[in-house]
Amino acid sequence: MKIFLLTHERELLRPTNTGVLAQNVAPEIVERIVWARNEPNPSLLNAINQGNTVLLYPLDDADVAPIESFENIILLDATWQEARKIFNRSPYLKNLPRAQINPQQMSQYQLRRNQPEGGLCTAECIMEILKAKSHTDIAERLNSAFGIFNSKIRN
């Protein structure tokens, strides 16, 4: 399994970015790719072209793929506004099957404005993916790291 974090460049400078936690906890699973509008990453395009890749992105319709049945998951690592920009300006993402997660709890990450109801931060999304893919031990390690991160960032 591979989780590709398609990351907006501004996210790299934010001390509140949680994608880095997942990358540190599970470097063998989580790969960060900085989004470049005009130069898509070759390894990401290769994963897309090989199939078995899904985009975790909210849907308005009922055409949802079960995340458990995919080996590669692309997650947009950005603010909600930046994530929409990445999606809208990346034609290679448009035809991917899309999945969404149904979290069991509300987000514990309350630092960003304009967070939609039910929205999760990057680390929380990755925890949900890991649980769905039966990687509960890694999900628990990420949850512990996220708890420490969250308490530090709030203080």
Rank of each mutant, 00 (worst) to 15 (best):
I101W: 04
V30L: 07
N49R: 11
P116I: 12
I33E: 01
I74K: 00
I74E: 01
I33C: 02
I33T: 03
T16L: 13
P15Y: 12
G118M: 14
S107Y: 03
N114T: 06
I101H: 08
P66F: 15
N38M: 13
L55Y: 10
V54N: 00
S90E: 03
M127G: 01
L96S: 02
Q104H: 11
Q50A: 10
R112V: 01
R113E: 15
Q110S: 12
E117C: 06
E68I: 05
L111C: 08
E117G: 08
R84M: 12
F87V: 09
W80F: 03
M127V: 15
C125R: 02
L21I: 06
A65D: 03
Q50C: 09
P97L: 13
A123Y: 14
Y109A: 01
E28T: 11
L75N: 01
A99W: 02
I73N: 01
Q108S: 13
S69D: 10
L93G: 01
R84I: 13
A83R: 08
Q105I: 15
S90T: 12
N46M: 07
N17H: 14
V64H: 02
Y57G: 00
Q115P: 03
I129N: 00
I74V: 15
S107C: 10
T18C: 10
Y109G: 00
E128W: 06
L93R: 05
P40S: 09
D61K: 08
N95G: 04
E11I: 02
L120S: 01
R113A: 09
I129V: 15
E39N: 15
R84W: 04
R37G: 06
E39V: 11
